[in-house]
Design a protein around this nucleic acid. Sequence first.
RNA 1: UGGCCAGUAGCUCAGUGGUAGAGCAGUCGGCUGUUAACCGACUGGUCGUAGGUUCGACUCCUACCUGGCCAGCCA
Length: 481
Amino acid sequence: MTQRLNRLKIATLLANPPLHQPTVVLGWVRTRRESKAGVAFVEVNDGSTFDNLQVVIPASWSGYAEIVPLLHTGTAVRVEGVLVPSEGGRQAVELQAGSVTVLGESDPLQYPIGKQKISYETLREYTHLRPRTNTFGAIARLRDVLAAEVHGFFRARGFRWVHTPVITGNDAEGAGKAFQVTTLDLEGIAASGRDSETGRSGKAPDHKDFFAKDFFGKAVSLTVSGQLEAEAYALSLGDVYTFGPTFRAENSHTSRHLAEFWMVEPEMAFADLEDDMELAEAFLKHLCRAALEQCPREMAFFKERVEPTVIERLEAILAAPFVRMTYTEAVEHLKASKETFEYPVEWGTDLQSEHERWLTEKYCKAPVILIDYPKDIKAFYMKVNDDGRTVRAMDVLVPHIGEIIGGSQREERVDVLQARMKEMGLDDHAIASLDWYLDLRRFGGAPHAGFGLGFERLVQFVSGMANIRDVIPFPRTPGRI
RNA sequence: UGGCCAGUAGCUCAGUGGUAGAGCAGUCGGCUGUUAACCGACUGGUCGUAGGUUCGACUCCUACCUGGCCAGCCA
């Protein structure tokens, strides 16, 4: 007989309570409140929903003295009982236990996350246990809903999901340092690097065909973006998107950066920057709406315990069109402002975080889409405007996070693209590794555009969580795994 | 990588150049239904590590380690 027989998930049970019927609940104890002369109240959570189920164990139950003392926070239990309207005020129904079985004990002296307050920092040392807390359970459910809605949004618009590779041989994709991937015996190389003739240690391997011995016969790395490969499929299938893990080997110690994160990258054929902006705005609005509609309990919790303004912020996103302005206009607004910035604003330099924050939080008080950036501060693949000094790039800035989306119309002219590669300092080797990318323009090239959205930043924005390490199950950051 | 802040009980924190405290957790007792339960008692710490100053350092200084914030890089 299966253990799950007659099991009712708490989410199902609370949504439609089967009153006065035999019910089985499986879950983990959150807290126990005991009244020795009377009854024990045990809050059980099974992860299916935010709320706990109050289990009431009468003193008259034969197993009381043996079982109830074991019901510490974290204990896995099976409860058989009858669902009844609750006499207490905080919950509509409660489970009158007929019997309670302990499936897995939890030693309160060893268990690190009891019901006492515990900081996010400490919880990061227990990434395997933190989903049992209110906050991380809520984040996990929100994250799931948002991920499903990423797919839902694009499928509804006829986009195909493309699985771009994690291991890539592309050089200089234009988005940060990559993690090298190798099967070479690094320990052996390090040891033999102690040159017996010169006595020098740690000699770097320098001959050109060094990586010829490696698994792929060349130097490869973990992808920093699926965009380039997505372009190949956009110029075949029309509208596509990628959604998967991405890796950056930057030594970033901030609340907005991870070494491993998930990225959503749509790519549309026969599209320009206007189409790209329309897509980005509709996409963000769709996800905010999904969170409000599908995670009301979680959102209420975030508002109460995490960030008081989250809900109104999401509603504000839905209420008005995003502000659109050119980089040049933004620079003018910033210069005209009376705000004193730590860094000066100058046309041709990238906007600082403080500038972006001022634009979205103070000047526009809404999401802002900035377009037409100076070409020198943007990637080689962005389409050069007719003015010759700006490119068809866009950044979507939102309050609280700053840049959440970066995108562009891609350069479809082979000669211009090649010139831009050289202009941006790609060496011959890098350009050679991207020859296939030029093929996309040589054969049936067409206007196309796309963007990238950091999924964790989205979850941060929607939940109000301050630190990106707390919106991904197992965060990877420099020096810590 | 740079600047700044922090590290005291299992957790959240207070503390003073004179030898360490509270709440929660845990144990025991009390309370006829609680819900951050409550009341009483008990248990629990070489004050991040290593040096230095001092009669004396948890407190002051230096270095290091760890964590965090901000900046840069970006998503």
